[in-house]
Amino acid sequence: MSSKLRAVCAVGLALIVGLAGCGKPKAKPEAANNKRTIVFVFKLVGIPYSNACQKGAVQAAKDLGINVEFTGPAKGGDVAGQIRIIENQISRGVDAIVISPNDPNSVKPVIDKAMAKGVKVFTWDSDAPDTKRIFYVAAADDVGIGSDIMDQLAKDMGGKGKVGIMSGSQGALNLNQHVDGVYKALKKYPDIKLAKPILYNNDQPQLAQSGMSGLLQAHPDLGGIACVSSPGPPGAARAVIASGKTGKVKIWGLSLPSENRRYLKDGVVNGLILWDPGKLTYLTAKLVNDYLDDVKPTDGMEVENIGKLSVSDDGVIIMPGVVITKENVDQFDF
């Protein structure tokens, strides 16, 4: 009895796989409206940063008259999920895929495969340098951002004191590179000492705050903190306010202005290093669209509303970033 039933199931399974194998490829979905489709694959969807990017993508779709879609894993650091999504887009046969890889090595096989199948692949926000991707659009390099944060912090600390570092998850490559940047810059300031341990907030505001509170207890003489992921500065600010150390502990970091507006104005957070994610995505969509029309980006080209781009030989396109302080925070609406 039981083995018969199992046989039925096995036949069912075989049927499914078999049907799948025999099926014939149908027309591309885009054929319906004949528009070009560019898909952005985020590191993670459903967070403010990706949202700000999506606004730029929507605007670009409108201005350029193309389809721009966005997708990405729903949980942080989901490298496998991201590959799965890219595979999906390849079988869908879109015109171009723009990726912000969670990990540069992991996407190599799938990027090379996409290129071989005629789907153009680009990266933005984070790079995958050793792949066949066509170009990479960034606001700054990952290590450079860390150094910039540390330099600004050192200036505000007067070049001496104790400094802490707060990152997001221990597994995130770009964050680890930011931290490397902070270390690198730290070497220039012999009078600044590192306060251990390095805090990891796992991208959760609560952990950012409690971690910072702990660090303030462990190092009562802490002079500043460099935060390399977005929940960092507001979380650190709340901890600093709660312990009445506003102004004594300087906070610089990578975060969105909307999350920090109040803290910047109150002088708890000293400044942010960032770029406009919407503009970055808009620019990327435009450059990719141009590329598909056979117009290639050139070094030093001026782009309206954005500024002068630097384009290097290995296909890295850098858009100028911004330093946000309480003076200019109201100019940014993301």
Binding site: P48, P205, R238
Partner: peptide, 13 residues
């Protein structure tokens, strides 16, 4: 009340 803000991915742990 503590964070003054909330976002859907804030408390998975």
């Amino acid at each position: 009340g503590i964070n003054n803000t909330f976002q859907a991915n804030d408390v998975p742990d």
